[in-house]
Computed example of a mutant assay.
Amino acid sequence: MTLKTQQRYKSANGLAYFKTGTGAPIVLIHGVGLRAEAWLNQVPVLSQQHTVYAIDMPGHGESALLAQDDAGLEEYVDAIADWIKTEIEEPVIMVGHSMGSMIALNFAIRYKALCAGVAALNSVYRRTPQAKQAVQQRALDMLENPALDKVTTPVLRWFNQNPQGFEKQMAELCKQWLLAAPATGYARAYQIFSQNDGPRDDELAALDIPVIFITGDGDSNSSGQMSERMAALCANGSYAVIAESRHMVPMTHPEEINPLLAEFVQQCGIQTRR
């Protein structure tokens, strides 16, 4: 399956994005190795009542690498926050997947005045020692060997074995994006992803906006238990676990995800059209 690449806008700090719809703003942030089109199944629904901004994470798609070679999660968040202050100029609902959910949660914690709600999909929280070692080893391998196969193993983790029909189409799209992902941007982002283990408990407890955590019941690295524990720490937190799904639930299970997101957006209280 081939998907048409959306025409991008480019911010002054090098962030690339596309936008569609009218109304209060929603910002979508994809995971490592992907690009803004990963939200292809959510954009048509969310843009019916909102302006939807789908970004390429720094160093991905058409977005520039951050200038600092040693940039961490906070620098990624700061770049996106600067863009929101300049381009959008009002509070947003943040929706992030995988590493994008790390960015979304960190944004909500550090830029409270700019965030009306957070949906964190397939987010990690307190990996087991074995899982932490495995993800950090993958990140090290990627940095030390840029020619390493960066497609086969992720797709096997992210999708059901031998995907069929619609899920197979989504897996093929992910393969295309992973093959095209800039090597340096991919490796740097994966290193940050491997080193972060979810927000601190006190940071989650201090969030007073609506927060929802969504994952797949077959995603062992971003498990339902992780989502439940994070939601319990938030004053206005909730969670959902999608049956018969793995890491790429936004792509593989839009019929379950989209109603959850639409309902969540209404709870955030900025649904009035401009």
Rank of each mutant, 00 (worst) to 15 (best):
89 E>Q: 06
90 E>M: 01
90 E>L: 01
94 M>R: 08
95 V>C: 03
95 V>E: 02
96 G>M: 01
98 S>P: 03
100 G>W: 00
102 M>H: 07
103 I>P: 06
106 N>K: 01
106 N>C: 04
106 N>T: 05
107 F>T: 09
110 R>L: 06
111 Y>D: 00
113 A>F: 02
113 A>K: 02
113 A>E: 05
114 L>M: 10
116 A>Q: 06
116 A>T: 13
117 G>T: 02
120 A>D: 03
120 A>N: 04
121 L>H: 01
122 N>L: 11
122 N>F: 05
122 N>C: 08
123 S>I: 05
123 S>T: 08
124 V>F: 08
127 R>N: 01
129 P>T: 00
130 Q>D: 11
131 A>R: 11
132 K>N: 06
132 K>F: 06
133 Q>K: 13
133 Q>F: 07
134 A>M: 14
137 Q>A: 15
139 A>K: 12
142 M>R: 05
144 E>D: 03
144 E>F: 01
146 P>T: 04
147 A>Q: 11
148 L>K: 13
150 K>D: 12
153 T>D: 11
154 P>T: 04
155 V>F: 02
156 L>N: 13
156 L>Y: 12
158 W>R: 07
159 F>I: 10
160 N>G: 10
160 N>I: 15
161 Q>P: 02
163 P>D: 14
163 P>I: 10
164 Q>I: 14
165 G>N: 07
165 G>T: 00
166 F>Q: 13
169 Q>E: 14
170 M>Q: 14
174 C>V: 13
175 K>A: 11
175 K>V: 15
176 Q>L: 14
181 A>L: 06
182 P>C: 08
182 P>R: 04
182 P>A: 08
183 A>M: 13
183 A>P: 08
183 A>L: 14
186 Y>R: 08
186 Y>L: 15
187 A>N: 10
187 A>L: 05
189 A>K: 09
189 A>G: 14
189 A>M: 12
190 Y>I: 07
191 Q>C: 01
191 Q>D: 08
192 I>G: 02
193 F>W: 05
196 N>Y: 12
196 N>K: 05
198 G>S: 09
201 D>R: 15
201 D>I: 15
201 D>V: 12
202 D>R: 13
204 L>P: 03
205 A>G: 05
215 T>E: 04
216 G>T: 03
217 D>L: 07
217 D>G: 04
218 G>L: 09
218 G>E: 03
218 G>F: 06
219 D>Q: 01
219 D>W: 09
222 S>E: 04
223 S>Y: 13
223 S>H: 05
223 S>V: 10
224 G>S: 13
227 S>A: 15
227 S>G: 14
228 E>I: 06
